[in-house]
Design a protein around this nucleic acid. Structure first.
Lengths: 201, 201
DNA sequence: GTTTCTACCGACTGATGAGTCGGAACAAAA
DNA sequence: TTTTGTTCCGACTCATCAGTCGGTAGAAAC
């Protein structure tokens, strides 16, 4: 019988944090279960008690990261009233100082690579994309109500907007020597305004 | 002493093809040297004779693939006279039937993930991006001469255009269930026109 | 007190795969 | 003919690591 009832939650948090640290620093491919044990301060057996396989663990870690990114997106968007401001509120994606962003990008790249060869991972990725798209869709709907935008297929447009954000983020991260924060922000603003231009009221 | 002088070239081509097949089908992470041997129809020793380490081999395979993509880009652009047509000539990136594209995307995703944790790979990636950017820059310059575009920092604009192409490609590939070819083409056209809009003469 | 269940430990196993190495076949050079 | 260098072979070594398993500590149940 469990010594403390909240113990499980504490351990899960410990393990997911450790997994996040390990994967973002070494990469998913070279992160071992022992790495995660060590960082979490648990033994092999302790870790396995909560996640039977490496795959279980990785899946949970990826979901946890996506959850954090999603929460950040929702919070930042909620700070604005105007729908267009909400849609263009993603400057934080290109902030080197932000640990969620900079340390997290390698994890997203790892995950995309895994998704290319693993259907289960790909579905998780699709779900994440879909959540993001829904967030943007809601803002577009709001903009239509507010009279900022004309009628449109909000889902298709939201997919375009999120794809542009993500593409620029990838490029900004990989090509860090030649791609500045200002370049990224200019690019996304112009790109997204291009997407929205047929629908500006 | 070499039996046939062209033998080396033949073997290299054999090995790079095999590497491409292996990596695109199984993923870089789970491709083994033995896989490449088998596909190339060579023994371990034979493979090692040409590429001492797995890293050497992979680097060569990635460069070969980037070369092919670059050639395709240059050829396709060259079919158009008008600069804007050249810049918007990348429909082929979103063609499921094209083996260079569909089978190659997993390889690019793998390589981006490797680049996140490996400086040598990252530099190769940067170089590839730069080649692509130069191709687009040349078209932009041409457009300025032709009077299609106003003066601009062609390099910055070219970086934006290529980032949009790549972002949409990634999304189109990963989110294949929900992202159509037509969506990809519409998105890139509007996005890129948004990038170019301040510079249309 | 005894049993039972959870939480955790860490040594061990078994598989996998990169890189090694001695050698064979063969061609050209000496 | 002998020697030397190239190309290629495939069995072997050795490190790594996911997952296993027998065991312990301690709390609750009986």
């Amino acid at each position: 019988m469990p010594p403390i009832p909240e113990l499980e939650k504490i351990r899960i948090a410990q393990i997911l944090d450790a997994g996040l640290i390990a994967i973002t620093s070494k990469g998913a491919a070279s992160t071992t279960m022992d790495d995660v044990c060590r960082i979490a301060g648990l033994s092999k057996g302790g870790l396995v008690h909560y996640y039977k396989t490496k795959r279980d663990l990785f899946t949970a870690v990826f979901k946890e990261y996506f959850k954090r990114i999603f929460e950040r997106s929702a919070e930042t968007m909620a700070q604005f009233d105007d729908a267009l401001d909400q849609i263009l509120s993603y400057d934080w994606l290109y902030d080197k100082e932000d640990p969620l962003v900079t340390t997290g990008y390698p994890l997203i790249l790892d995950f995309m690579s895994l998704s290319a060869h693993d259907e289960e991972y790909r579905l998780i990725m699709e779900e994440w994309i879909n959540n993001w798209v829904m967030l943007l869709s809601a803002a577009l709907e709001k903009g239509i109500e507010q009279g900022t935008f004309k009628q449109m297929d909000v889902n298709e447009v939201a997919k375009s907007i999120s794809a542009i954000y993500q593409g620029i983020a990838t490029r900004w991260y990989i090509g860090r020597n030649t791609h500045t924060r200002q370049w990224a922000i200019n690019t996304y603003r112009r790109g997204i305004m291009g997407i929205l231009s047929p629908f500006m009221a």
